[in-house]
């Protein structure tokens, strides 16, 4: 466990040494503040418009950070040949993967804390109220979603040849799932065979990340959030998919030639 923790700390340190997060956070803050300063019909109490833009930017930034950070972990260790001394120590390949996963997940969690704090400050300043419970639930579901994405990209970093291809394919797939996955069943019902069965199979097999993504509408419009049981079930659902992709990554990595 100490090995996993030590590896995770290295990933977190790497994230705050790199400029990715700072650039994305400053961009998000700048765009939000710029749009927040626009006056629509002499009304300075309009808040949902800015909350929506901010939330969307947070989602986009967090996905970029999660995917790019995870995608380069294993390939950079192999490219710099640091993977060999790492594995020469009493560290198993599974521990390396676990360390990388938890490092990326915790690093993304830290970024999300900063993003959500900014979101809360902007919302509070405009709305003069702070729905901490909703923001916490939104944050948690967002973080669970990133766990699934990170474990998927970790698998991709072993399967795909380069971090760039892994990042691009992962981003396209994740965005596709977020925006289209929930509608696949409706589309499949209108198709003829075998298209209908194929689409239904995809619908039931992909991780429905939109559960976590769609919560932002509830946060933006100040609607009641899902119950604790729903959040628990969604966490289990996300955890199961995260574990599945992690297992796939470990199966691909355990006998892989690193030379």
């Amino acid at each position: 466990m100490n090995n996993v923790f030590a590896l995770a700390v290295v990933v977190i340190k790497e994230l705050y040494r790199r400029k990715d997060f700072y650039v994305l956070f400053i961009l998000t803050a700048l765009i939000t503040l710029l749009l927040g300063s626009i006056n629509f019909f002499d009304d300075d109490k309009i808040v949902r418009f800015i909350k929506e833009i901010d939330m969307n930017l947070i989602w986009l930034s967090s996905l970029i950070i999660a995917i790019t950070t995870t995608a380069r972990q294993i390939p950079s260790e192999r490219e710099n040949r640091t993977i060999f001394p790492l594995l020469a120590k009493p560290v198993s390949r599974c521990e390396v993967l676990l360390g990388k996963f938890f490092g990326c997940w915790l690093a993304c969690g830290l970024c999300l804390v900063v993003f959500y704090l900014f979101f809360a400050v902007i919302s509070g300043a405009k709305d003069h109220s702070l729905d901490v419970g909703s923001y916490l639930e939104g944050f948690w579901l967002h973080w669970v979603c990133l766990a699934v994405v990170i474990s998927f990209v970790l698998w991709g970093s072993i399967v795909f040849a380069a971090p760039s291809s892994n990042s691009t394919i992962s981003l396209v797939l994740v965005l596709g799932i977020l925006f289209v996955a929930q509608h696949l069943k409706k589309v499949s019902l209108q198709l003829s065979e075998p298209g209908s069965t194929i689409l239904s199979a995809i619908y039931y097999s992909v991780p429905h990340l939109e559960f976590f993504f769609n919560v932002r509408s509830l946060v933006i419009h100040g609607l009641p959030m899902p119950s604790i049981i729903d959040i628990f079930l969604a966490t289990l659902y996300g955890g199961a998919y995260g574990a599945f992709f992690f297992l796939a990554a470990w199966l691909s990595f355990r006998n892989k030639s690193l030379a």
Partner: peptide
């Protein structure tokens, strides 16, 4: 709802 995913997913959006 057409299935459990649809039913469960409705708890997460308006």
């Amino acid at each position: 709802p057409t299935d459990w995913i649809d039913k469960f997913g409705r708890h997460f959006f308006p």
